[in-house]
Computed example of a mutant assay.
Amino acid sequence: MELAPQLRRIGNDIVAAHLIVTDEGITLVDAGLPGHYRDLQRELQELDRPITDIKGIVLTHGDSDHIGFAERLRTELDIPVYIGAEDADRAEGAKPPATQKDPRRVGPTVRFFAHAITKGALRVPPVRKVAPVHDGDIPALPGAPQIIAMPGHSPGSVAVYVPAVRAVFVGDELTTRHVLTGRQGPQPAPFTDNQTESSRSIDRLASLDVDWVIPGHGAPWRGDTRSLIAAYRAAEADAAPARQ
């Protein structure tokens, strides 16, 4: 799915990954679930680009619904998989800690887990070799993605800022569609390790000049970051009593 001439999406509002498409090659931001590999193939067919044009993957964090086909591409193409250093162990198979109990509604929760299972959530291979990155790093990949440390959802969560497509990819540091409640709009994401830290990290987006803020779950946000942060803060305030 085309969002902009050099910006493509695979998946849907439940789980998504994204492609930065340039003449020099393609950078993937996140790798969804294993079943999204076929969606990737279809997207490349539409673009008339071979899979060998993919030069690397940047993971926003190490959760299973973001690393899905990363190991497959890493071994098939011999490409790097970058991830925030503090999440390297999670991508390599370490179990994440238990998180606070999130609000749920039956319908959205069932749809999320059913979709995840159909896309291979029960058989996600760990990434056996990752390249750790840190705040301010710019991996040598098409589009020159810039790493912004965004701890909270997980210790090594990062945003991936790509000025070439005027977009920032925020992984699960926020969501625009809560997969467990179905609530729409910018808001804290479920399954977050440390919501207080995540909330602080959101302010790091304020200075970015972008047209797109793109989460791993939910519709891409088209607009400036300050409006997004204001909407996030309102939703955060609404959700606070439920977390107490």
Rank of each mutant, 00 (worst) to 15 (best):
P50I: 15
I51V: 15
L59M: 13
L59K: 04
H61T: 03
S64R: 15
S64Q: 15
S64G: 14
G68I: 11
G68P: 12
G68A: 13
G68T: 14
F69V: 13
E71R: 14
R72G: 09
R72H: 15
R72W: 15
L73Q: 11
L73P: 05
L73D: 10
T75L: 15
E76F: 09
L77H: 02
L77T: 00
L77K: 01
D78Q: 13
D78T: 11
I79F: 02
I79K: 02
P80A: 10
P80E: 13
V81K: 02
Y82G: 01
I83Y: 12
G84I: 01
G84A: 01
E86C: 01
D87G: 00
D87W: 04
D89V: 02
D89T: 07
R90F: 11
R90C: 04
E92T: 05
E92A: 06
E92H: 06
G93Q: 07
G93N: 03
A94I: 08
A94W: 09
K95W: 02
K95N: 05
P96F: 01
P96I: 00
A98W: 04
A98K: 08
T99N: 00
T99W: 00
T99C: 01
T99M: 00
T99E: 00
D102V: 06
D102N: 07
D102S: 09
P103C: 03
R104L: 03
V106L: 12
V106T: 12
G107I: 10
P108M: 04
V110Y: 10
V110M: 14
R111Q: 11
R111A: 10
F112C: 09
F113Q: 12
A114L: 15
H115G: 06
H115V: 03
H115Q: 11
H115R: 10
A116F: 13
I117F: 11
T118C: 06
G120Y: 12
A121H: 09
A121T: 09
P125M: 06
P125C: 06
P126K: 00
V127I: 13
R128T: 08
V130P: 02
V130S: 04
V130W: 05
A131G: 03
A131E: 12
P132Q: 09
V133K: 01
D135I: 06
D137T: 08
D137I: 06
P139K: 08
A140N: 11
L141Y: 04
P142Q: 08
P142I: 07
G143M: 04
A144R: 11
A144M: 03
Q146C: 00
Q146I: 00
I147F: 02
I148D: 00
I148P: 00
I148G: 01
A149D: 07
A149N: 04
M150S: 09
